[in-house]
């Protein structure tokens, strides 16, 4: 990593590039762009259908959404601990923290799946109304990114367990971590936007 400002007096250095492989940051920005457009589209679509959106929103399980937010934030926290661990060369600890993050990701998927099951079995589909179209599209799209994030973390975890990372060389861990934080970050906006604000 290129260090821009190496000031021994200051507690930290400034890096030229964000953590992990720069390539993943291209994807992160592209994802932010795609979801950002969707979020804005939701808000403006709602503006034309306020009564419909407010009414349909009442049928969502806000509790599930909130718990899921807590779950993802916690799994992000675990990933931060994992990166801290490998920075000190503790591969096994790193792998365990990532395992915990994946576990919480699985909890997120489970809770979300229950929510979907509930909706689908009452006959709600993408074509039911504009609110449900957005709700299902956004959360399913996000769901797929959670899965992808978990796969990336799993690959990192396996490599960490085999001793593939060290204190000097752990770009892969930071790469996977950055992607996972993005997944969390998107949900942090999605939850209030779709479940709460009316």
């Amino acid at each position: 990593m290129i260090i821009l400002i190496n000031n021994p007096k200051s507690a930290h250095q400034v890096y030229a590039t964000p953590p992990g492989d720069l390539a993943i940051w291209f994807f992160i920005f592209a994802e932010l762009l795609a979801f950002g457009i969707f979020f804005a589209a939701y808000a403006f679509a709602r503006a034309h259908n306020i009564a419909l959106f407010d009414a349909s929103q009442q049928h969502l399980s806000r509790t599930s959404g909130a718990i899921n937010t807590l779950v993802l934030i916690t799994s992000s926290y675990f990933v931060v601990r994992a990166v801290a661990a490998i920075k000190q060369g503790y591969s096994n600890q790193c792998a365990r923290w990532i395992g915990a993050a994946i576990g919480f990701g699985a909890i997120f998927l489970a809770i979300k799946s229950f929510e979907f099951y509930g909706k689908f079995s009452s006959g709600i589909t993408l074509s039911t109304n504009t609110f449900y179209m957005f709700y299902l599209s956004l959360t399913i799209f996000h769901f797929m990114h959670v899965i992808l994030g978990m796969l990336i973390l799993a690959a990192v975890m396996l490599k960490a367990r085999r001793g593939g990372y060290s204190a000097e060389n752990h770009t892969g861990v930071e790469t996977g971590a950055s992607y996972w934080h993005m997944v969390d970050l998107l949900w942090i906006i999605l939850f209030p936007l779709i479940y709460v604000i009316h």
Binding site: H12, V14, Y15, P18
Partner: peptide, 8 residues
Amino acid sequence: FMDLRHTR
């Protein structure tokens, strides 16, 4: 979390 604090 993403540690962007320590980047440009």
